[in-house]
Design a protein around this nucleic acid. Structure first.
Length: 275
DNA sequence: AGGCAGGCTTTTA
DNA sequence: TAAAAGCCTGCC
């Protein structure tokens, strides 16, 4: 591939850290970079140096799609500048260690379903189910790497999967939750576009009304799918962090509206050390 | 009323 | 065999 476009970012950007951060489950490492599907498009991205990435697309497509996907209009360095070693040594070290991570602006629908699938499972198992779902119900597309990839199934595609195909995706007891969410959106019962205009509280109330969608799944869908950076997923790891590192309380009010971003640094930093 | 234990599918380590 | 980016149900 001799074409493509190289970006010089304002912040350090670290593709491998993003790939391992547990927010994206369909990145595939290949050809010296990562193949990334997003909605009906895909791209191959390679790390050149800490500030530069190469993308297999044109500059126009980068500006129209991938710049936003990587949230490169936002300066994470500026947001994190207020966290000092003196005030919060754990978060400070987490940010230093996980420097280069981004909160990707992924597709809301895909993140809602993916978040449902994550419950009670580890990352390799989540990846397997999400890839199986895409292969069985998504649309086959030509890949920029040659060959093909599968888009994530639309609400309609998912709602109309056969029981057999759906159960082949190894979703276990989550199968009925995934189906219910697909039917709710496909039937128009839940309006994904209307949710975008809602306040965080309204949005949480609506999502949590879906079966199998609790507080944690809702916060993941909001953080990774709607880019609500204050959504704060408290899972088993974050629970341990709050207990171990913040016995006197975590200053959540002080970290508004970036609780979700800071959570992402802490989550991977802590998980890496304790697993 | 609200907090808690147990169960749930399947994979991973 | 236990634990895994949890949630639901039933019990007290």
């Amino acid at each position: 591939m001799n074409h493509g476009f190289t970006v010089i970012a304002d912040d350090v950007i670290d593709l491998r850290k993003i790939a391992e951060s547990g927010q994206c489950f369909r990145w595939t490492e290949m050809m010296g970079g990562f193949h990334i599907p997003h909605r009906e498009k895909d791209v191959l991205v390679k790390q050149i140096d800490p500030y530069r990435i190469w993308l297999s697309c044109t500059e126009e497509e980068y500006a129209g799609i991938w710049k936003s996907y990587f949230d490169l209009d936002e300066s994470y360095d500026a947001i994190c500048a207020g966290i000092t070693r003196e005030k919060d040594p754990f978060l400070y070290e987490a940010i230093r260690d996980q420097h280069g991570i981004r909160i990707l602006k992924q597709d809301f629908w895909e993140m809602l379903i993916t978040s449902i699938i994550t419950q009670n499972r580890n990352i390799p198992a989540i990846k397997k189910s999400v890839m199986l779902l895409s292969e069985k119900a998504g649309s086959k597309r030509e890949s920029v790497c040659g060959g093909f990839f599968y888009s994530f199934p639309t609400p309609s595609q998912l709602a109309h999967m056969s029981d057999e195909d759906l159960s082949d995706c190894k979703l276990g007891y989550r199968t009925k939750y995934v189906r219910a969410a697909a039917c709710a959106v496909d039937s128009g019962n839940i309006d994904m576009e209307a949710i975008r205009g809602m306040s965080d509280d309204e949005c949480e109330r609506l999502l949590i009304s879906l079966p199998g969608v609790g507080v944690k799944v809702t916060s993941c869908a909001m953080l990774f799918g709607l880019h609500r950076l204050n959504a704060f997923p408290i899972d088993v790891w974050v629970k341990r962090i709050l207990q171990d590192e913040y016995p006197n309380g975590y200053p959540r009010n002080e970290y508004s509206p970036y609780n979700g971003l800071f959570q992402q640094y802490m989550f991977e930093y802590y998980r890496k050390q304790h697993s």
